[in-house]
């Protein structure tokens, strides 16, 4: 757990974000989203499907500049994993990974990384020959290959079977711990978030805003299945039953933490 006041990796103040529909009308998607990612911190952005999590992530990653507000990012490489693997179908697994490396680094030995992610036997394959689980693993390998200071992941484990998802989660966790990288992960899976994160940020409403934050101080190793269930029930009590006015939510306006969830 990073100390309070650790240098920030990312700070975003999105006052407003609109989508333009095909008929020309604008729809407000985000409103007053304030988000901080500290160095070495693992933050999960939680919220119902379609509430604007991906939009938030794209803004944070610098892929969408069409919003009102300000995002400051620390220098340093960013790794990103999209919802779909987004591999180049005409390049092999290994070429896909090499391509995102800085030029001077292109001929680096990728074997340790590939081996660690169980991809050593697949390096020469084209993406169409991979299962979705493998393709996602390649996308994760690509993000890790740039040795990022911060990682952005958009529901990277969705539609994987439980075992594959658990394995990838563990690999991500191991990398983040070893490298001290900050991770911002979008998910709608509360249990996944509770298993991995140092802090949860809850996004909800229309337009969506931050409706709550929850700091998880229990060390990851001590988060048993029953602990996860209990926390998840607690979260549901706090957030699902109340109306979507941000001020009504615990910890929303001030950013204070709810009672320590231990």
């Amino acid at each position: 757990m990073p100390a309070a006041g650790a240098p920030q990796c990312l700070e975003a103040r999105i006052s407003r974000k609109h989508h333009r529909r095909a008929d020309g009308a604008t729809v407000a998607v985000l409103r007053d989203v304030h988000l901080v990612l500290n160095r070495g911190e693992f933050v999960c952005l939680l919220g119902p499907s379609g509430c604007g999590k991906t939009t938030t992530l794209r803004i944070l990653a610098g892929l969408d500049a069409d919003f009102e507000g300000r995002v400051t990012r620390a220098e340093g490489p960013m790794g990103i994993v999209f919802q779909e693997p987004r591999l180049l179908p005409w390049r092999t697994v290994e070429e896909n990974i090499r391509l995102v490396l800085p030029r001077a680094d292109r001929s680096r030995d990728l074997h340790p990384l590939l081996a660690e992610l169980g991809l050593a036997d697949h390096a020469g394959l084209f993406p169409h020959a991979l299962s979705l689980g493998l393709a996602r693993r390649v996308a994760l390998a690509r993000a890790l290959a740039v040795e990022p200071d911060w990682l952005v992941l958009d529901e990277p484990f969705v539609s994987l079977d439980a075992a594959a998802a658990a394995r990838l989660r563990a690999e991500l966790q191991r990398f983040a711990d070893r490298r001290g990288a900050a991770v911002l992960m979008v998910t709608h899976d509360v249990r996944e978030a509770l298993t991995l994160a140092d802090r949860l940020v809850l996004l909800a409403g229309r337009p969506a805003g931050v409706v709550g934050e929850m700091v998880l101080e229990t060390p990851r190793a001590e988060r048993t299945a029953s602990w996860v269930e209990a926390q998840s029930a607690r979260l549901a009590r706090c957030f699902d039953a109340t109306p979507p006015a941000a001020e009504a939510r615990p910890g929303a306006a001030s950013g204070e933490r709810p009672p320590a969830p231990v």
Binding site: R58, A61, G62, L63, M78, I80, F82, E84, R86, L88, R91, E95, L99, V100, R103, R142, V146
Partner: peptide, 21 residues
């Protein structure tokens, strides 16, 4: 547009984007 976004996110050099994407 998805691959273009991937290329932007990873800051691929213009020549790499042209040749590989």
């Amino acid at each position: 547009p998805e691959l273009d976004e991937m290329a932007r996110a990873y800051r691929l050099a213009p020549l790499d984007r042209l040749r590989h994407v």
